[in-house]
């Protein structure tokens, strides 16, 4: 099943039960509640995840992280997968 899409207008934040472990390629994200391990496969994606504060919109965070609009689609897909596995949650 495809995850629920994330849009530029959404507000997201790291789930309080999730810990990030930075790695060469990005990070490991472990959810202590559902015990799922996710991989954040790119350092730029990690930078975005860390910048999400639940106040600014996803679009604003992508801009501030210097992700140009050509890469928005792939980041939105990645964020949707992370929301689906509850690494991120909506505010």
């Amino acid at each position: 099943m495809d995850p629920v899409p994330v849009t530029l207008a959404d507000r997201l934040v790291l789930h309080p039960d999730v810990a990030l472990r930075p790695e060469r390629f990005g990070a490991l994200a472990y959810h202590f509640g559902n015990r799922r391990l996710s991989f954040i496969k790119h350092v730029d994606l990690l930078a975005v995840v860390e910048a999400l504060d639940g106040e600014r919109t996803v679009g604003e965070v992508l801009d501030s992280a210097g992700v140009d609009s050509g890469r928005h689609a792939s980041f939105l897909t990645a964020l949707a997968t992370l929301s689906d596995s509850e690494v991120l949650c909506a505010t």
Binding site: E23, F25, G26, R36, L37, S38, H42, S74, T77, A78
Partner: peptide
Amino acid sequence: RPEVVSQPPAATRPLVEEFRLGLDAPIC
């Protein structure tokens, strides 16, 4: 190993390659 989910955008190097090089701490 745990259930795993990996994320786009496309990684610079396939994750399997990264793991083959070893991480600073074990996953499992």
